[in-house]
Computed example of a mutant assay.
Amino acid sequence: MGRRRLLQLAGLATASTAVAGLAGCGTSTSTSEPADNTPLTIGYVPIACSAPIAIADALGLFEKHGVNVALKKFSGWADLWTAYATEQLDVAHMLSPMTVAIDAGVTNAARPTELSFTQNTNGQAITLASKHYGSVKSPEDFKGMVLGIPFEYSVHALLLRDYLAAHGVNPVSDLELRLLRPADMVAQLAVEGIDGFIGPEPFNERAIKSGSGKIWVQTKQLWDKHPCCSVAMAKEWKAEHSTAAQGVVRALEEAAAILSTPAQFDASAKTLAQEKYLNQPPELLDGPFSGVYQDWHGQTHTDLDRMSFGDPTDPAAIVWMATQIARWGLGGDTLTMDDSTIIAAAESVLVPGLEVTSDHLSINGVDFDPLAPTRGYDHMDSVIFR
């Protein structure tokens, strides 16, 4: 029985109880401590990965767990990154590698940060323009293309680089990776400004529905159960607001259980479709939630783990991300290709009690050992392109 199916069964009662009891929950809290009524602004980017934040807000789950939350929408990651780095936000939706980069201070933006909750695993795809159907047979055919990525410190950018390198394509000199806000990716595809993109839902679905693109591969097929988005907290804020921090996480856990429950898919999609959340037609979320998708050749598949919510944070995955930041020269002088440096950077963002273990990962067909993260990347000319 798959992990998502277990979550669905386990979460069904929780979800039903949560939805049914919202009318009477008022401002009750889940702890005996007084609620912290100081307004907390949580920044987010309107993509399907942010669903736990949006559902928690829509169903009053933050209030239920004693936190006064206001959401602030950002159109792209650069703006959110700046707002968080300049302390306009203390809690934010982040791409998981962003937490490592900003905590380690690999750029001028540095702030001690904890990855407090993994919002989703899987749920991304590489989508190519429909005009390439029939001519693109393998990743080697990506040479010369312009591909959109949402942010440098994203699992998208890191996984795509690794995928290309694994197939002998230099992601620096053989093609162009162009930073684009998720909302701009399909528009750029339609006007032939790019040849494809690696990005979140519902934009892969939108490309298919508009006829401008086709899914080349689900990122799940490159790395199953890979984390994508998280909720990050500034460490100094969490230390001063431990009750509120706990309430935020509990609300997100409850929202993730609802999102993992098939009986709630339609209601969740309609809630997320609202202008104040994703502002997208609910039918574009049907596939990501139900697991149904069309492959490059137009064949329909159902994969219940196409997109999952609320999986435990995987320390090994964070080590891999830190390794790739160093590998592609994105870590400056701070995060370099040194095992102890990389492991320390990953451990620094983990919640207390989580530790890096010897559990290996399989990513793009390669075995990754989190305790020896630079192993296998020592052939600089053939493996590391800068």
Rank of each mutant, 00 (worst) to 15 (best):
N108R: 13
G66A: 08
T99M: 06
L80P: 00
G105I: 10
A125H: 08
F117K: 07
A110S: 05
K131L: 12
N68F: 04
S135Q: 15
G123D: 15
H93D: 09
Q119T: 03
A70T: 08
W77S: 10
T118A: 13
A110D: 06
L115W: 00
V69R: 10
A78M: 06
E140V: 00
H65A: 12
A92G: 09
A92V: 10
V106E: 13
Q88H: 05
P139E: 08
Q88N: 13
L80I: 02
V106K: 11
N120Y: 08
Y84P: 03
N68S: 13
P139I: 08
T127E: 13
V67K: 09
W77F: 15
L95H: 05
V69T: 04
G76A: 11
D90M: 01
L71P: 05
S75K: 08
V100R: 07
A78K: 06
M94Q: 09
G123E: 10
H65V: 09
F74G: 05
L71G: 09
A92I: 01
T107Y: 11
T107G: 15
K73S: 10
K131I: 04
F117A: 15
S135F: 12
L71K: 02
K73Q: 01
M94E: 05
G66E: 02
P97V: 06
N68Q: 04
H132P: 14
K64Y: 05
K137P: 02
W81Q: 07
V106W: 11
K72N: 11
M94R: 03
I126M: 13
S130M: 10
S135E: 14
V106S: 09
D90W: 00
D79F: 02
S116C: 15
P139K: 07
T127L: 01
V91S: 04
H132K: 06
G76C: 05
L80M: 06
G66D: 12
N120D: 15
S116E: 13
T113G: 07
F117N: 12
K131G: 15
S138G: 06
S135N: 13
Y84K: 03
K64A: 11
W81D: 12
M98V: 04
L128W: 08
